[in-house]
Nucleic acid binder design. Structure first.
Lengths: 111, 111
DNA sequence: CCGAATCCCCTTCGATACTG
DNA sequence: CAGTATCGAAGGGGATTCGG
């Protein structure tokens, strides 16, 4: 791998990682990865301890970062669906190794 | 990949990711990955905007999580060196795809 | 040189109530 | 159903000082 300078704001790794190094972003992405296109309330049910506020703002950020696409339908009651963009899909492909690692090394890290 | 429940505290992925989903942990790990065994002050210089407090506490957490090993030498002045454990090495192997992804997709995400 | 301890700000986050 | 608005608590994080 190429040598990185870790200085801000020049370092791409820092810029990218900072986007989903929060409490919920990766979790929401994993959730949609596993279930495909999902509605707002479906995501809430899959992550029971996320608040409405945090889910909304997380989804908004992920959409701004071009990782998610939001589709709203003008129905009553409203329906909104979220799915991964192509960029989001490729991110989750890169994330898969990390997810697998988490499953395998759970014990070593948390003991 | 196996189906995950994303509920806390049962989900291994959540438990593991929560360990380094903070502002500095991944950055410190990347830094030591690239430079090998490093002294405290070397790390500080590589990440100019980290405070002493945050570097110390981050290093301590990573040591508790069995990702780093800390070697202190009883010299004057003191010398302390940090390096990746075997677990840490394997984590960074899984992280590599994510780092490469960051370099490649920097534009799409930050635009 | 390598931290620990203190003080304090400021953001993040949760709870609750409310809207189209 | 899918959010927004508001308020407050909690704690992450910076600046500074002190110690071995």
């Amino acid at each position: 791998m190429q040598e990185l300078d870790l200085k801000f704001p020049t370092c791409p790794v820092r810029n990218v990682l900072a986007r989903f190094s929060d409490k919920w972003s990766l979790l929401v992405l994993v959730c949609i990865l596993q279930n495909g296109k999902m509605r707002y309330t479906e995501i809430r049910r899959s992550i029971p301890d996320i608040s409405q506020k945090m889910l909304s703002s997380t989804l908004k950020h992920l959409e701004e970062d071009n990782l998610l696409v939001r589709e709203a339908y003008a129905e009553i009651p409203p329906r909104v669906e979220y799915s991964l963009t192509e960029t989001g899909e490729s991110l989750m492909l890169a994330m898969r190794m990390l997810l697998d690692w988490s499953l395998q090394h759970f014990q070593e890290v948390t003991q």
